[in-house]
Amino acid sequence: MAVNKTKLKKQIFDIIQIGDKSNLASRAFDIFIVGVILSNISVMFLQTYDQLEPYYGLLSVIEWVTTGIFCVEYILRIWTADFLYPTCTRGKAIGKFLISYDGVVDLLTIIPVFFLSGFVAFRMLRVIRIFHLFRINSKYDSFNVIKMVLLRKSRQIISSMFIIFILMMASSLCMYSTEHAAQPGVFSNAFSGIWWAVSTVLTVGYGDIYPITLLGKCMAIVIAFMGVLLVAIPTGIISAGFVEQYQNNANEESKVVDVDEIGELLVDDVSKFCGRTILQATEEYGVNIYMVLRDNMSILPTGDLEIQTGDILIVKSKFLEKRRGSSLS
């Protein structure tokens, strides 16, 4: 009986896992969930139209049915969490799932329906349902490219955004100094110019707030040109990241790896790889990881996959010849 229950749980786990292209039932489940999410989000939009008030009852039924499906999915993911984290105890596996991205998105998707919808905070939480689509798309190649680019270029992007933020704050202070005397109602304090700074630096320019003094206009011209240059920096970083990622993907698809150049590395408790993601291991140690063998599963090495104790890594590396046949420690 216990064996049958474990087998059933494993089958359910395989089906509800996102992005398993080798499992027809899993792909069908992904398509079904996408349809449920789109239906739920459509109801959110339709409920904002006063003209559709006679149909609010039907829309509420659809919302409750789709949310019920989300609840069932959430319960099944908790029930099968020990397969998601096979090296952890059942209690620890459930805890790790609950605080994971998937677990948090699932929970925040369900919460608004069971609480008072009159509160603004709970109405805003309904928007979290849209992130269900991100969770599904992130497991497929098209969206995974975007995720990999953002992860690889995250430091450069954050640095450029910090520079833009500093420019906006400095622009606000400068414009307050030059325009406060002429427009005390518009530039009443240093922070009041932040709206003008944002719209100018980001090249939107709504025109509801603008300088009228000669010095202020001259400063606005300089700030506008600086904004064009600085906003182009993160755009260039992301564009270069896409080019690099697609080149890497093309090279991986066309590259033929000699069997003599690859091998296995066992990850133990003191391994340099233990606890790191595939992306971190690749960047820090220059190792190409082609497959992760975990228990009885073969896992494709996505960038955010965390390497665990007991994993066997199928790798190609410059230092593999010196360490062939030994575990990485």
Score class of each variant (00 low, 15 high):
F273I: 00
L313K: 01
I289H: 03
D311S: 05
L265G: 03
C274V: 04
V287S: 01
S298T: 15
I289G: 03
V287A: 02
V267D: 00
N296E: 13
I237A: 07
Q280F: 09
S326N: 12
N288S: 13
D268C: 03
G286I: 15
V243E: 15
G286A: 12
N288D: 14
G263V: 00
C274G: 03
S298M: 15
G310Q: 04
S317K: 03
D260N: 12
L266F: 09
E283S: 15
I307P: 09
D304N: 15
F273W: 01
E244G: 10
D304R: 15
D311P: 05
N296V: 14
A250R: 11
K316I: 03
Q308K: 10
G325D: 00
Q308Y: 11
Q245L: 11
S271R: 04
I289Q: 05
N249R: 12
N251M: 10
D260I: 07
D258Y: 01
I299G: 05
M297L: 14
E252Q: 09
I262T: 02
K322W: 05
Y285K: 03
G310F: 01
S271T: 02
F273H: 00
I238M: 05
V256S: 12
E284L: 15
V315Q: 02
G325C: 02
S254I: 09
M291E: 09
G310D: 08
V292Q: 02
G325A: 01
G303Y: 15
E284Y: 13
N288L: 13
Q308H: 10
E244F: 10
C274Y: 04
K316R: 07
R323E: 00
A240L: 13
E306K: 11
K255L: 06
D260M: 10
Q245F: 11
M291A: 09
Q245P: 10
V256I: 14
D260H: 09
D295C: 14
E284P: 13
Q280G: 07
G325T: 00
K318F: 07
G310A: 05
P301H: 12
V315M: 02
S327H: 06
S327M: 05
L305P: 08
I289F: 06
A250Y: 12
S317H: 07
V267C: 02
L266V: 08
V292M: 03
E261I: 05
F319Y: 13
E321C: 07
A281D: 04
V243Y: 09
I314P: 03
M297H: 14
